[in-house]
């Protein structure tokens, strides 16, 4: 269970450009389910995903991941949790140019100090899941958009995360590739991975993969979540 209790996020607090991106949001997201956050641009979806994914800390309120309160942990502990529990798929593919697809997939596991050969084998296996093993040595610049997206997914899976967070994953894909992506999500879901997506793409939130759709507007949850 991921539970968000009364969380607010204020940017630039105390400055003239102070901005409340999230306003006392409460949510309970059960594990092994797929949740889609939906809402207009600027409604705070990315901000909420960042807080859940231990990328940033809320200004007030608490977030629990599997009963562990992550809100007041020092950064190094947050990173540890982020690395071991979450896998991220971003709006842009955010791969590092100039190095191979394989290395890109391995990067999230470097700080764990795992043995190189084991790590490499696992990265190949993840690439294999998406029929990319032939492209492992290719540089990122040489990959097609769809291939790059799949490399990014493989990277999100390298540490065998329990939760996958995807922010607008289909924004840069055409509808065929978007459907293909939802197919992959469906497969992951069937393996018991918890998935949280943010999107305003109907292909995502109307798909039968979504167990629940949470609607947001102006930093508040207006439908689907546990209301405060």
């Amino acid at each position: 269970m991921i539970s968000v209790r009364d969380v607010s996020k204020i940017f630039n607090a105390g400055h003239p450009n102070e901005f409340t991106a999230l306003h006392r949001v409460s949510l309970n997201l059960p594990l092994h389910e797929t949740t889609v956050l939906k809402g207009p641009s600027g409604s705070g979806k990315t901000t909420l995903l960042g807080l859940i994914g231990c990328m940033a800390r809320p200004t007030t309120g608490r977030i629990f991941v599997n009963e562990l309160e992550i809100t007041s942990l020092p950064e190094r502990f947050l990173t540890e949790i982020r690395r071991s529990t979450f896998g991220f798929i971003f709006q842009q593919v955010n791969l590092i140019k100039g190095i191979s697809a394989l290395e890109n997939v391995m990067i999230p596991a470097y700080p764990t100090g795992e043995k190189h050969s084991l790590l490499r084998a696992r990265a190949m296996e993840k690439l294999g899941m998406f029929n990319l093993d032939m492209r492992a040595a290719a540089r990122i610049e040489c990959l097609s958009g769809g291939e790059a997206q799949r490399v990014a997914i493989a990277r999100a899976l390298i540490n065998n995360p329990a939760i996958i967070i995807a922010d607008e994953p289909t924004a840069h894909l055409d509808s065929t590739l978007s459907r293909e992506f939802m197919g992959i999500i469906k497969e992951l879901k069937s393996e018991g991975v918890t998935i949280i997506l943010a999107s305003h793409d109907p292909i995502v939130y109307d798909s039968d993969v979504a167990d629940r759709v949470v609607e947001m507007r102006d930093g508040k949850v207006i439908k689907g979540g546990k209301r405060p």
Binding site: N12, P58, T71, S72, P74
Partner: peptide
């Protein structure tokens, strides 16, 4: 102030 989620605290931690 470890309990605070303020930006100052974040800066201090960094």
């Amino acid at each position: 102030d470890i309990a605070s989620g303020s930006e100052l605290q974040l800066i201090l931690e960094r």
